[in-house]
Design a protein around this nucleic acid. Structure first.
Lengths: 172, 172
DNA sequence: TATGTATGAATGAATG
DNA sequence: CATTCATTCATACATA
């Protein structure tokens, strides 16, 4: 995209693109991670953050994200490298990923997505083949379209779809 | 465990991308959220879904999840209270670009041992346009396509400082 | 300068 | 509703 922080403020917010862990910080984090600490508690996060702050600026959010990514990444690596089949890793067979990815590499990024049906990417990718003009296809039963999902919320009808909250809406 | 689609590992079925709210949808959702509607009733969800469906494919579940996440992440706590700098000079000039509603703490700050001009400025975001065709939903990024209409990204662009971690660690 | 990779960060969805 | 997971985006850095 273009201006991340200079938009509203207009001042020099000195945008830090993103936190870059120093080697020391990384070592500490790695060590902690190796200790078997899966999801550090808030207190732990604060502690770690404080410790790491001695070796460079850092926030609790950074630490949290780090662990979060670490776990996710580690798991992903395991699945791909282990004896597990895992044939599809990062296939990314999306319709047209070309234009999407290249917009950041260059110095210019367009916010103006060209109107194209191919780019349709939603919960029901299959419809892309026979998508009309997405006029009345916005039916709430988008998930119902697949039989695979029927087991979850298929027979539920209109509202049973939320298995996580069958009563999320009580008072009107 | 519910296997949505990815579990089958059928590389043919492709992977269904998660719902990506269009700028318009996001604006509407944001607006509704700002109205103070905490937990929209089922009827409300239906209504919203119907409204949003005019701007792209969406299901009630998407709306429901959105509000759930919104509420959860909106609570963004100031965890950065402990994060202090030690040997590095921290600039407190960081300010809040705006104050829509998700203006979390001003603890964003990182990058330490690399004094360099972080002045990134590309172009004006005015290039964004709202396609009334069938492209509104095919936004390649849907991030800050329209920064002016949504304060979501308006605060700091992609870096929402805090957004996913309001209480990451439980009791420990 | 352009491309590829590693990884921090954002977010929709799932689970408890 | 709180927390965690999984996926994707975007950027820092290495490389040609």
């Amino acid at each position: 995209y273009c201006d991340p922080l200079m938009a509203s403020a207009g001042h020099r917010i000195t945008a830090r693109q993103r936190w870059t862990p120093t080697p020391v910080q990384l070592q500490i984090l790695d060590q902690i991670f190796d200790q078997g600490t899966g999801s550090p508690s808030k207190q732990k996060i604060k502690d770690i953050t404080l410790e790491l702050s001695q070796h460079g600026q850092i926030s609790e959010m950074n630490v949290y994200n780090w662990f979060q990514n670490r776990r996710a990444r580690s798991k992903r690596k395991q699945l791909g490298s282990s004896s597990n089949n895992a044939e599809t890793e990062q296939e990314t067979e999306v319709e047209s990923p070309n234009e999407k990815k290249t917009n950041l590499g260059t110095l210019l990024s367009q916010q103006n997505p060209a109107p194209r049906a191919d780019d349709l990417c939603f919960q029901s990718p299959e419809i892309s083949s026979e998508l009309h003009f997405l006029s009345e296809m916005s039916s709430p039963s988008a998930y119902n379209g697949d039989e695979h999902l029927s087991g979850k919320m298929g027979m539920l009808g209109s509202y049973g779809v939320y298995d996580q909250a069958d009563d999320y809406g009580m008072a009107g």
